[in-house]
Design a protein around this nucleic acid. Sequence first.
DNA 1: AGGCGTCGCTTTTTT
DNA 2: AGCGACGCCT
Length: 720
Amino acid sequence: MIDYKKELNPAQYEAAMTLEGPLLCIAGAGSGKTRTVVYRLANMVEQGVAAHDILLLTFTRKASQEMLHRAGELLGHGIGAVSGGTFHGFAYSVLRQHPPQGFEGGLSIMDSADATEALKYCKDTMGLGKGDKSFPKTATVMGMLSKARNKEREIGDILQREAFHLAAYRDDIVQISTGYSNYKREHGLLDYDDLLFELENLLRTRPDLLDYYRHRFKYIMVDEYQDTNLVQARLVQLLAGGHRNVMAVGDDAQSIYAFRGANVQNILEFPAMFPGTRIVKLEENYRSVQPVLDLTNAILAEAPVAFHKTLFTSRTGGNLPQLVKPLSDLTQANQVVNKIAELRRSYEPKDIAVLFRAGYQSYHVEMQLSKAGIPFRKYGGVKYSDAAHVKDVMCYVRLLINPLDLPAFQRLAANVKGVGPKTALKIYEASRLADPSTLDRLLKKYPDFAKDLELVDSLRRQRLEPVEVLEEVLEVYKPRLMQLYPDDYPRREHGLEQLVQIAATYRELDLFVSDLSLEDPNPDAAASEDHITLSTVHSAKGLEWDAVLVIDLVEERFPSKQALQKADDLEEERRLMYVACTRAREYLGLFVPSSIYSRGGGGNEPAMPSPFVRDLPVYLYEEWKENYTGGLMQREYQQQRTMRLGDSVPAAPDAFSRATGGESEPAFAPRTASRKLGHCTHKIFGRGKLIKHLPPDKYQVNFPGFGLKVIMEAYLQMEE
DNA sequence: AGGCGTCGCTTTTTT
DNA sequence: AGCGACGCCT
């Protein structure tokens, strides 16, 4: 028997024990969210719930597998057939069993590269935006279309709000959008957004199926609920609408996917969607040492989040986070590598990570790490399955599943010398319309492509395992690999070996293909023990390391350039910064280069430190500057710092959470008023910004240089 | 007419 | 580094 009461804190215990009815778990960073879900799963099994009855929706398949694995360990036996994965993965698994109208002949999932290519094709064939230099790029148009669908608003609306300069192209963009939809239907293609909407449509139009799935999944858990969008919330409502045994877990402070339509309101409105929801807040942090936690709390203090939490930790000791100011982003790479070398004396490589806002920002660090012989693994940015050779090979496989998949057909054809999109389309039309004379003539002209089509046909006749299919394809494709990529074909060949390895774990071809586009498989994750991690902050979500280094903390990089315009976007960047820093257990390094290389400015340009760093009270970190010889020197302590030394947490956490959490207050109290608060002056701390009114007579105030304080109103001089 | 090489320009984040 | 426009080649 598991002693739940002993192994969980009271809030975790409550969440793990509540199995029936709707439950919302607000879990701060590092508060043992996974642990709580794991114990809850174990409890379910002990209470006699069959694994088969549980649906566990998580952000990545890896996350659901880890939860199941750990629950299995806890129970001392496997937990078996829990269904789980991402919303998109789940949607596909349902849709492949119940193909929507028009997809009976086969159904291909397009990843974002496929979708953009298809959109470009539509744009070109419709002759829109030709020769107009300021016409938005295909990728930009794709982004707008996807945003409109995710937020469920008109395209014109999105353009107006997010890209005013493109509003003039609204009609053209709407036309492209219509053309794209038709194209997808015609060729049996679904993009990521379609998966969710088609699933909703299926459940709404087929009451029998809705009923079936409601009985099939008697318990539903949704992780990272703050990153769900509107249609995902409706799917949860549909699926859990019968029994209402549904748990949502999330943290509004870690919502970082608004750009793709994630709606923080979802988590706030969960109790309204499921009346009678029990709310549990996990606020004790088990991950980070106090100095790291103090700094992350300070980042969040300025954010207007609905549930204000100040996390507290029981982890004692720990050093102050370091703020390192290299002279440029180039020397930053050296400083990062030096620091990693130093950290490796105390930590395993797998416990060290370098985080950044965008994929390209790790470029210099990657170079220096390679030079220093430190192995690393990069997450985020370009995906493994985006590599041209992987896409090439997968096109053969896609045509097996869906013969109408025109993008796949065109891509294969384009690899043959002398064939471009137009010729490919001719062959495609000729084969589809059964026009043997044209077909014969064209295939004679391009014997290489004829060979490809023969291969696909012969594979379609046989019923082979995924791995066997791949081996046959590679036999034809490998010789072509050298021809196509003479410069680096050995590296690509290695990548294809990995693809075969992945294929070997599947029995069904369509699952192999869909998984590859729905979830980056991360080929040799198992062999990553001796690798340090480089990752975008988005891809680092839900993970943690002993030592975390965040780089490029300058204006226009982090926060990113385009987020500086709108307040909402800037708040999302702040939460992103919060997510980055809360990944650290013990060491946190913030790197702020004084200049960055930019193409436009013709070399190095001075850079402003990120506002997220600028606004931090100085006593929360120690500052190191790089000198001309590449060494680091510590900045002399400022007056405030000396004054504050020996002081503990900026805001006394107990008092604060008691004052804000409030057993009497409804837990869902949006902090609407706080935005309107102004400034005040205090005799000792000087001028500060009012953050929150703590009734009846206190205010939480942020004083530059002193940080968060809770002060009696009588001691404050208010400004207008 | 369609394919292919070259030059100039611009880079967020992900299922 | 990748897209798009432009111009030359088959």
